[in-house]
Design a protein around this nucleic acid. Sequence first.
DNA 1: TATGAATGAGGGTTCATTCAT
DNA 2: GATGAATGAACCCTCATTCAT
Lengths: 200, 200, 200, 200
Amino acid sequence: MSERATTTTQGSRTRGALLRAGRRVLERKGLHKARISDITKEADVSVGTFYLHFENKDDLFRQLLITVEDEVYGELVPAEPGSVDPAQRIRETNRLYLTAFKRNAAFWTCVEAAALEQPDVPGVLAERNRYYRSRTERAIARWQAAGQVAPEVDPATAAFLLGAMTERLAYLWYVFGHREDVDQATEDLTRLWLNYLGLD
Amino acid sequence: MSERATTTTQGSRTRGALLRAGRRVLERKGLHKARISDITKEADVSVGTFYLHFENKDDLFRQLLITVEDEVYGELVPAEPGSVDPAQRIRETNRLYLTAFKRNAAFWTCVEAAALEQPDVPGVLAERNRYYRSRTERAIARWQAAGQVAPEVDPATAAFLLGAMTERLAYLWYVFGHREDVDQATEDLTRLWLNYLGLD
Amino acid sequence: MSERATTTTQGSRTRGALLRAGRRVLERKGLHKARISDITKEADVSVGTFYLHFENKDDLFRQLLITVEDEVYGELVPAEPGSVDPAQRIRETNRLYLTAFKRNAAFWTCVEAAALEQPDVPGVLAERNRYYRSRTERAIARWQAAGQVAPEVDPATAAFLLGAMTERLAYLWYVFGHREDVDQATEDLTRLWLNYLGLD
Amino acid sequence: MSERATTTTQGSRTRGALLRAGRRVLERKGLHKARISDITKEADVSVGTFYLHFENKDDLFRQLLITVEDEVYGELVPAEPGSVDPAQRIRETNRLYLTAFKRNAAFWTCVEAAALEQPDVPGVLAERNRYYRSRTERAIARWQAAGQVAPEVDPATAAFLLGAMTERLAYLWYVFGHREDVDQATEDLTRLWLNYLGLD
DNA sequence: TATGAATGAGGGTTCATTCAT
DNA sequence: GATGAATGAACCCTCATTCAT
C-alpha cells in the first residue's frame, strides 16, 4: 500500500482526479491495455504526479476496487429483518444488487480480470463475499426457525450456491450479455432463490 | 487461422510440442505473463520455430482453446436419453462435467481472463454454451412431457440458469477455491438442479 | 508528422542532437544499415529518447531532408536579375549549387536511395525541382526577350533538361566520382548551359 | 561470385527460373523488401534450392544485373560507322537506348538503389559506361575529323556530359516521371546532343 | 539436386519508472 | 507538490542461412 504524503487539499484533489480518471480509462481500455500515461492524460496531470499518489497501476487499481466495492455493496442496506416476508426481502435485495452491478459492469470486467492474475484481489473479493454470505445464511436460518424454509436445507450451502449464482448471472447478463432490463432479471433471479429455498 | 505450412511428420510433431508447452506455460504464468520465449524454451525449440506454426501468442491460445474445449466437453456424451431417470442423468452429466473441468481448471483460468480481453473468445465460448444449453433444454422439455417436471418451468430459462450456475460453481470450487473432491461437489450441484426443476 | 511534444529548451536541444547524429550516421552507413541504436549512441542518449522526438527512422529522415534541402537550396539566392550578363549569372548559380551539393554529397546519397523506396520522398524533391525549374525558365524567357537567346529554344524544355543535367553531373562527380574541384566543374557545367542556350 | 555446381540440364533450368523470378520480385517489391522466400515462392522451388544456385540475394542481383545489362545495351548495335549522317546516327541510337531503358525501367530502379549501397555495383555500371562513352568519344572525334563537329569540342568531355544527361533523362522520364512516349523523348534528347555538338 | 523445418542473432518499439528542474 | 524528458530493460517478430532427409 502506498502511504504517500498528499495531505494538502490540492493533493487529495489530484488524487481524486487520478482515481476517477483511472476508473474511466480502465473501463474503456481494460486492465492491461490501460497505460499510466493514459490515466494521467485523462486526469490532466503529468506522469510524474501519478507516482506521487500511487505506487503503480496495481496500487491504483486496489484503491479503486475498495472505492467501487463500497459503492456497489453499500447500497445493499438491509431493511428491518423480519419486518417483511422472505420473498419480498429477497426480491428487494436482488433488485438492489442487480441495479448496482449493472451500473458498474464495465469496471467489474476489470475486477474479474485482476482477480485471475493479482494474488491479493481474490482475497479482497472473498472477504466481501463472506460477509454477504453470512448475512444470507443468517436470514435463511431465521426463515427456517420460522418454519418458512424446509429444515433439510443447509443454510451455509444454500447461501454459497445462491450467492455464486447471483454473481454469475449478473456477470453473464450485464458484462457479456448486454442485457438492459432490471425488472425481469430481478424476477428470474428471485424465482431461482425461491425455488431453491422452497419458498412460495 | 494461420497460413503456416509444416506438412511433414516432424513438423506436426513440433507443433504438438509447442501446443503442449504452451498449455503448461499458460497455466503456470497466465496469458499475459507468458512469453513466447518461455513457451519455446519449454518446448525445446527456438523462437523462430514458434512463428513457423503460429501467428502469435493469441493464435496459439485460440488453437489451444479449441483443443481443450473438445477435451472438456467431448466427454459429456449423453447416455441413452430416457433410458434412465432424470435425477440419475443429471447426476451423471454433472459428475462428468466437474471431473473434466477440474482436470482443466488451471487452463480455464486463462480462458476466463482471455474472454475478458480478446474479442473473439467470448464468441467461441458462447457457441459451445448454446449447444449444451439447447441439449439441457430439450431434456427438460422431455421430462415435462413425461410429467416429471412441473409444466410452469420454462425449459429455456431453466437451461440458462442451471448452466450458468454449474459453470460458476465449477469455477469457484476448482479455480478459486481449490476444492478437491468431486463426489460431494456433484451431490451439491445435482441437488441444486433437482430442487430447481422440482424433481424428487 | 510526429505528434511528440518536448516543448522545453532541453527537449529541443536533445532533438537537435538527434538530428545531427542522425545525419552523421546516415551519411556513414546509409539509410538501411543505420540502426536507431547507432543514432542514439552517436547522440549520447538512450533508445527511448529517440521515440520521444521521432516516430521512427523514416520520420527522422524526412525531417532531416527538409533541413538539408533548405541548407542546399537556400544559398541559391539570385543576385539582381538582369543586372549581370547571362553567362555570368549562370556561372555564379552553378558555382553556388555545386559548392552546396558537394558539401552535402554524402547525405544526398541517402536521399537518392530513399527516393527510390519511400513513396513521399520523390514528391518532396519534385516540388523543389519545380521551383528552381520555373526560376530558370523565367530567366531564359527574359534572355530571349532581350535577344540574347535564340527564339526557337523552348524555355520550359530547356529548363528541364539543364536542371536534370546539372543534378546528374553533380551526382556523378561528387557522389560517385569523388571529384574534388569546384572551379573546373563549374566551367564544364556552365559551358554546357551556354552551348545549349546558344549564349556566348 | 558463386561457383556452384548446376551442371545438369535440370539444374540450369532451375537457375533460370530463379533469375526470372528474382527479376519479377525485385521489380515488384524493390531490392530491400524482396525476401529470398518471395523469390523462391515465385520460382516455385524451395528456399534451400536458392542457396544451391546463388550465394545470397546480392549474388543473384549481380548476376541479374549482367543479364539485364546485356539485354539493354546489346541492342545498341552500331550501324556501319560513317555510312549515315551524324544526326541520324545519334537519333537512332537514342531511340534504341530509350526504348530498351523504358522496357527495363522497373528493374533499373533497383539497380540505382543497389549502386548506392553495394560497393561493387557502381563498378559494374561504370565499366559499361566507359565502353559506351569511348564509343561516343570516337564517333565525335570522327565527326570532328570530317569537319562536321567544331574542333574546340573536347570529345571526352562531350561524351561524358552527353552520356550522363542521357542516362539521367531516361531515369527522370521513365522511372520517376512515368513518361510513356518514345518518339518525342527521342526528339528532345537528340536535339540536346545536336545542340551541344553544334550539329545541324 | 531438391526440400522445407529449424535456427537465432538482430532490430524496432513500448512503457513503467526516475529525477532534475 | 507538480512537471515531463530521459531511461533502458524487456519483448515481439523477421528472415537469411543451414542441414537432415
